[in-house]
Computed example of a mutant assay.
Amino acid sequence: MAQTQQLGPPPPGPGLPPVSSVTDVIEQMHAFRASWPVTDGLAVFNRVYLAVTEEIGRRIDGGDFPDRRAAVTLDVLFAERYLDAVDAAADGRRPPACWRPLFQYRRHPAVRPLQFALAGINAHIGHDLPLAVVDTCRALGCEPAGLEAEFDRVGEVLVLLEERIREDLMPGPDLLEIADPLTHLVGAWSLERARDGAWSAARLLWGLRDLPELAEEFTQRLDAGVGLVGRCLLTPWR
Rank of each mutant, 00 (worst) to 15 (best):
P109S: 12
H124Q: 11
S21E: 10
M1D: 12
T183D: 05
F218P: 02
E167P: 01
H124P: 10
Q220M: 13
A123E: 05
P11W: 05
A145R: 13
L182H: 00
A224D: 13
P181A: 02
N122L: 05
R166F: 00
F65S: 05
A71Q: 11
P9S: 09
Q104T: 13
A117G: 14
Q5V: 11
D168N: 08
R138I: 11
A194Y: 03
G141M: 09
G225Y: 12
P37H: 14
E162N: 11
R166S: 05
Q104R: 14
P12F: 07
C137W: 04
A194K: 02
V159H: 00
L7Q: 09
S200V: 14
R238D: 15
G92P: 15
A149T: 10
V186Y: 01
M170T: 05
E192S: 09
T53W: 01
C142T: 15
G146M: 08
E55G: 02
F65M: 07
V76S: 07
R93G: 08
H30C: 10
G92Q: 13
T39R: 08
I26S: 02
I165A: 07
D196M: 06
W36E: 14
W237S: 04
L50P: 10
H124C: 03
V111Y: 04
E54Y: 14
Y105N: 00
R94G: 04
A90E: 09
T39I: 10
P212C: 07
A188R: 15
P212G: 03
V44G: 05
P173D: 07
F151G: 09
H30I: 14
D84F: 03
